[in-house]
Design a protein around this nucleic acid. Sequence first.
RNA 1: GGAGGGGUUCCCGAGUGGUCAAAGGGAUCAGACUGUAAAUCUGACGCGUAAGCUUCGGUGGUUCAAAUCCACCCCCCUCCA
Length: 423
Amino acid sequence: MTDQHLIDNLNQRGLLTQISAEAELIEHLGSQCCTVYCGFDPTADSLHIGSLVPLLALRRFQEAGHRPIALAGGATGMIGDPSFKSNERKLNTAEVTAQWTAKIKDQLSRFIDFDCGENSALVVNNLDWTAGKDVLTFLRDIGKHFSVNAMIQKESVKQRIEREGEGISYTEFSYMILQAYDFAMLNEMHDCTLQIGGSDQWGNITAGIDLTRRLNQQQVYGLTLPLVTKADGGKFGKTEEGTIWLDPKRTSVYAFYQFWINTADADVYNFLKYFTFLDIEEIEAIEEADKAAQGRPEAQSILAREATRLVHGEEGLAGAQRISDALFSGDISTLTEGDFGQLKQDGMPSSRLESSTLVDALVQTDLAKSNKMAREFIGNGAVLVNGKKVSDPAANLDWNQAFFGKFFLLKRGKKLFHLGYCE
RNA sequence: GGAGGGGUUCCCGAGUGGUCAAAGGGAUCAGACUGUAAAUCUGACGCGUAAGCUUCGGUGGUUCAAAUCCACCCCCCUCCA
């Protein structure tokens, strides 16, 4: 348990944004196995890669000998965190939130170890201690510790209060109190002394530190991780297809792998620090080597490999690599019938083609949103069928020319593929 | 409850009776250049092969003609109570 190490390591990786009572916290971490928590609210039935940094951070703490608690926000998810959000969110029903919470809980469980002695992980749901709380008791025992004057000063809600044209409901405004209460409860029940989260959570975390001191007379700590940004200013974690989810039913392992492969050079070394467990020295060596080699860097494929393995395991990674190799580095005409079957198995986007025209096929496979778009793509020379460019918008798909009589590999643009088949 | 302001295509945002499928910007997509990178340039960006059709919070109405006018309703914001 080498704790200056842990903090140093996080620091070198650029993973520390804010930290409360740093010197004290370092000493605290150094003296014992501490309990660390991080909350994840169910805003969908899966986490997305935006949650990956804190999730992996929990694991980093566990590897350093501390006990992680992953909290699924069954209660807070019903309210909606206003922190740095410009709009009020719409509420989901209790049933939906409960379903999502169950799924999130399940996902969280895959990233931390539940069977490693005294620092075995825990997964909890804050609904367990919130649901039974009656309003009056809550307002008297908890609410009394909060000053509205202080709450409205928090940067996280400021824009909602000050900006013309937006507002904040009492419901969302109360979110901070709920999260603070979580920290106090976890401190009481599990002797939790540290909360981590994205830097947008700082206001909520410090609220929890204050409440725990008042309620339990305990000194607890907080630490925040950076929100991942891209060098070009774009939103991290989105593609044309939308959010990159951790659930392979929502984002296929192949798409997940490809997402990382497409990381910009300007971001990739930071991302290696954020999203892998490679040593900082190793990462630096990779950067050096890439620089020396000119041309195409290795970093992206290392990042994709590591991140995909972390989230989807060795098997998922192998499948994603097989598809990627087949589509991007090999000559597809050398693929065997069995290879095509394997690609389908591996989760390559594929579907049975019902149509005979190329335009219909593009629409049916979602490679184009409308017939009009499909024609435009074809006209632009953006569409390849079995590796050959087709530029006639009126082209038909002739099954006699399909690979093995039943496979059409459709490509739109540089990176989007779809395997169409018959039967 | 009172007074005022506002809801426009993915987002921001112009548009106050025809010239509006609706300026401009952003995002996104495609092509060229590359390395499945970035930057840059070009093009696309409601649907339809087209004629044309469907959009501007909702429902009705006025008009030859409405995103633009009227009525009612819903939602949001600001101030007052």
